[in-house]
């Protein structure tokens, strides 16, 4: 089996393990957020943020190339995260004036355009100056396990830990707000803070997921585990557990398929999660 070969051959293991660890960490990060994304109908916001983050990739690569830095490193990943959070807040502000679908349409299109323009400019500049090239555009769009080095895995783990601690810290007001935004203020919950916190956590999760699943498919990890959890669980706790199990199974199963068939990780993970979702739909719902 190629999976065993990749993960346990001493020459290959250091290349694959960081990506595998990052993928599992991402699953653990996305699992508790995913039911909220589904229940609050935020999947398009996630889609907007992930595509907006591509603009951040282009700008970051261009900025680094101007500074004479090539390739890809965790600091650049952090810059993309900042850009994604800003894009999420931009979507939130625009949503109030123009409606969510218009806001996402504007932000998504503008950021994708910015991303492609500056990615090309950065790639040309790096090639001219003989610096290490940026990650391939296909890897950015559809993800790559090999693109995650030890530094990337550490940054991803740290970001996931920060988000999970914040989520645990605000779990009660967040649930109160998510369940009923218009009355949450009467229970001491500041709605705008909760909205900003949720968008911030989603943005970080999207950026973390982009490494493995890519820009195009990053949102799937924020939607499918929650949809599976909500299908199988009876209350918030069992929904979260089912969502976590689905996310980890989807990521590990997808990576095995990716290794065995030699296809990209993002699509493999998404298809595995979709199969799990279909399986969950086939199980009769408890009464």
């Amino acid at each position: 089996m190629k999976t065993i070969e990749y993960l346990f051959t001493p020459e290959l293991a250091p290349m694959f393990w960081p990506g595998v660890i990052a993928a599992v960490v991402i699953a653990v990060l996305c699992a508790p957020l995913s039911p909220l994304v589904v229940l609050k109908k935020l999947s398009f916001v996630g889609q907007g943020v992930s595509h907006a983050a591509f603009g951040g990739v282009g700008l970051t690569l261009f900025g680094a190339s101007v500074l004479g830095i090539g390739g890809w490193n965790p600091l650049m990943q952090a810059c993309v995260a900042v850009f994604a959070v800003a894009a999420g807040l931009w979507i939130a502000v625009l949503s109030r004036r123009r409606g969510t679908d218009t806001a996402i349409g504007i932000v998504l299109a503008v950021c994708m355009a910015v991303g492609f323009v500056f990615y090309r400019l950065a790639a040309d500049r790096l090639a001219r100056e003989g610096l290490p090239p940026p990650p391939g555009i296909e890897d950015v769009l559809f993800g790559s396990v090999l693109g995650v080095g030890p530094g990337g895995a550490i940054v991803t783990t740290a970001a996931a830990a920060a988000v999970l601690v914040l989520l645990w810290w605000i779990r009660r007001p967040l649930l109160t707000w998510a369940f009923d935004e218009s009355t949450a203020g009467s229970f001491g919950v500041e709605g705008e803070r909760m909205c900003a916190a949720l968008l911030g956590m989603l943005s970080i999760a999207v950026v973390a997921t982009m490494q493995v699943a890519g820009v195009v498919l990053a949102t799937a990890l924020l939607v499918l585990p929650g949809a599976i959890g909500l299908r199988l669980g009876q209350n918030m706790r069992t929904v979260a557990v089912a969502s976590l199990a689905a996310a980890i199974a989807g990521v590990l199963g997808g990576l095995v398929i990716s290794f065995e068939l030699g296809v990209q990780a993002g699509p493999s993970i998404v298809l595995t999660l979709a199969a799990l979702f279909a399986l969950a739909r086939a199980i009769p719902r408890p009464v």
């Binding site: 229940l39 609050k40 998510a178 369940f179 009923d180 218009s182 009355t183 669980g233 209350n235 918030m236």
Partner: peptide, 10 residues
């Protein structure tokens, strides 16, 4: 009623 009644809450 503005509450999200699809939430899995009793």
């Amino acid at each position: 009623v503005t509450a999200e009644l699809s939430f899995p809450l009793d």
